[in-house]
Design a binder for these strands. Structure first.
Length: 637
DNA sequence: GATTAGGGTTTG
């Protein structure tokens, strides 16, 4: 290697460079692009160095031989370039390699052994050179920013560019312009990695090992010019991926999962030194990485809370075929039956921790649905007043009919028929004691609309007649003749029937107004129930599913209420009572999130946002929990 | 022994 007897190289300070000269320079790497294939015949590396004169020089280095370009692994390394031509470009000096140039690169860490990385077989390296490297290290330690782009997976945040040191576990072509690398660095992401679907036939790597490592493994997709490099990488090699970009995966995109996940992209181009480099086993950072990988407690990874389903999935799938699709396995591994529609950044809290805390608070939980009530699903549909929050049962049809029947005692008053608001028609029923039925067809600006847009008011009608009318007309309002105007019946009966849905009002909060107020509704073609309610002084009740979910996450068990009109199941509670398809759908969803006949281990996970609140009744105080901003995953609906 | 690239983010 070196010989003190050989004349030492003379290095020119960066402040003394002259255009058109050949020099040897030495400096601290401020910026670099790892070698990449240029559009010409050579590999190219762009390196910017700085020395104690605080002058920087950007060098364009070319070589047919990848390994002849400097082995720079990170900013702060020290490099000596011999045989560099200085030329001017855009009024600045730049260095350009000419045939036969050589370089030596050193770790820039103060106190690290001074070992040159070089391809040059015959290089001299004197004690003087050694001192120069030490001097540059010392100078750099106080004059160069030590902030590094290096970061571990556990510290990854969305929307970051950084350099990752990792081991390659698997690779596969995604398509012509993108390529997948599965890597790990022994640390665990706070936000789990996305999973990129590929043809399993194209996959290279030990799949079972990757599955064992579960979410210590991240998927990186590299694009364009990086694809060729990625293809050539050997499984097991240690890599540094420069300028890796992280991005949150949009919710409900064509992902394999409904969880919030982080995408890793190595975009095309070489801007900001973007690229991939294989690090040698001798590198001190690789040494550190290897230690981290060896110390990973695989048992802890496998028993961790969010990784259970993979074993079940492997067992069930392998009976069908040994060729388990990678995507299917990972999909199963990550299967989550619900999606959050808010607070994606909220960290998960275990149920045992929640049980120790005071209310009110909000939490994100990940648990399985051990059981739920009521088991007869339609019993979960209730009416809720949005104003006084009173919850009530759906009135029985017989009770509604009783109210209607009672109202028939008052015969239709002919004074209240055929007004500017409506045209009226009166019938007498046969064999029912001469019960009179009056139907008032509400006009739109004095004109009788088409039946599908027509609101009708019915006097003396029974439930069968109302349901017949509601199938023919837009909406039906049961009324009776009052002293001044038609009036609504008791609010225990629906104030409006539209199609098969009965709309009820809150007895406590409503303050009934005369029927003639219907004329004040601006759009008399839509007859929106809430608008009708408003002009008639009614606070409409909301149909809601009210269920008790018993969650279990292995740390504790928690009863949580679901009070939801249509967001959670994506099924309107108002329509489920009269729609067989919706009922079947609800039953199917419940059988997915709480499957009958299997052990809880095989249940899917559910991620939910829940809020705690205090409930005091008399002397008793308790904390209740309610689900919010959560919905069943799209692929289950 | 020409050319390549000439630091300064994809839009997947």
């Amino acid at each position: 290697m070196s010989s003190a007897s050989v004349a030492p190289y003379i290095y020119t300070s960066l402040n003394l460079l002259k255009k058109g000269t050949f020099v040897n320079v030495c400096g601290v790497v401020k910026f670099f692009k790892p070698p990449y294939l240029s559009k010409g015949t050579d590999y190219c590396s762009v390196v910017t160095i700085v020395d104690q004169t605080n002058v920087t020089l950007t060098c364009m280095l070319f070589s047919r031989n990848y390994n002849a370009l400097p082995s720079i692994y990170k900013v702060g390394d020290i490099i000596c370039i011999r045989g560099l031509k200085i030329q001017a470009y855009k009024n600045e000096l730049q260095g350009i390699s000419k045939f036969g140039f050589t370089s030596l690169t050193f770790d820039g860490t103060l106190g690290a052994p001074v070992i040159p990385r070089t391809l040059s077989k015959s290089f001299t390296f004197t004690a003087q050179d050694h001192n120069m490297i030490e001097a540059l290290r010392t100078w750099a330690s106080t004059h160069i920013s030590t902030s590094s782009n290096l970061q571990q997976l556990c510290d990854t945040q969305p929307m970051q560019y950084y350099d990752l040191t990792c081991q390659l576990l698997g690779k596969a072509e995604v398509d012509g312009v993108s390529f997948l690398l599965k890597v790990w660095d022994g640390t665990r992401m706070k936000i789990p990695s996305w999973r990129v679907c590929i043809q399993d036939i194209a996959f290279e790597g030990d799949l079972s090992h990757i599955l064992r490592l579960q979410n210590l493994v991240v998927d990186i997709v590299v694009y364009d010019n990086h694809v060729q490099v990625a293809k050539s990488l050997k499984i097991g090699s240690f890599l540094r991926i420069y300028n890796l970009y992280t991005k949150l995966q949009p919710i409900n995109s064509e992902s394999t999962t409904s969880l919030v996940r982080l995408q890793f992209h190595l975009h095309g181009g070489t801007s900001y030194g973007r690229g991939i480099r294989v690090l040698p086993e001798s590198d001190s950072d690789v040494d550190q990485l290897k230690k981290a990988l060896e110390s990973v407690d695989l048992e802890a990874v496998q028993t961790s809370d969010d990784t259970d389903n993979v074993a079940n999935c492997l067992t069930s799938s392998s009976s069908e075929s040994d060729l388990v699709s990678l995507c299917e396995v990972e999909r199963c591994q990550q299967l989550c039956a619900t999606t959050l529609t808010n607070y994606h950044y909220l960290e998960k809290t275990s149920l045992c921790a929640i049980l120790k805390q005071r209310a009110p608070r909000i939490y994100r939980i990940r648990a399985k649905l051990r059981s739920y009530k009521p088991r007869t699903l339609l019993q979960s549909v209730k009416l809720l007043c949005p104003k006084c929050h009173l919850l009530q049962e759906i009135p029985y049809e017989e009770n509604v009919d009783k109210i209607l029947q009672d109202a028939t005692v008052t015969p239709p008053d002919c004074k209240l028929q055929d007004t500017p608001l409506y045209d009226s028609k009166v019938w007498s029923t046969e064999g029912q004691g001469g019960r009179q039925v009056a139907v008032h067809f509400v006009k739109n600006d004095g004109i009788l609309p088409h039946s599908s847009e027509c609101l009708v008011l019915i006097e003396g009608g029974r439930i069968c007649e109302i349901s017949k009318l509601s199938s023919m007309f837009h909406s039906v309002i049961p009324v009776r003749s009052g002293p001044e105007d038609l009036e609504l019946l008791n609010l225990a009966a629906p104030f409006l029937i539209r199609g098969r849905v009965c709309h009820y009002g809150c007895k406590q909060c409503s303050n009934l107004k005369p029927i003639k107020n219907l004329s004040t509704i601006p759009n008399k073609r839509l007859w929106i129930p809430s608008s009708v309610a408003e002009v008639l002084g009614i606070v409409p009740l909301q149909y809601v599913f009210v269920m008790t979910f018993t969650f279990d996450d292995g740390t504790g068990v928690l009863n949580v209420y679901l009070k939801d009109s249509e967001k959670f199941f994506q099924i309107p509670a108002s329509e489920v009572l009269t729609d067989d398809d919706l009922q079947r759908n609800l039953e199917r969803i419940m059988n997915v999130i709480c499957p009958p006949g299997i052990k809880i281990d095989a249940y899917p996970w559910m991620e939910c946002l829940i809020k705690s609140y205090n409930v005091t009744s008399g002397m008793e105080h308790q904390i209740c929990y309610q689900i919010f901003d959560t919905m069943v995953a799209e692929d289950i609906i």
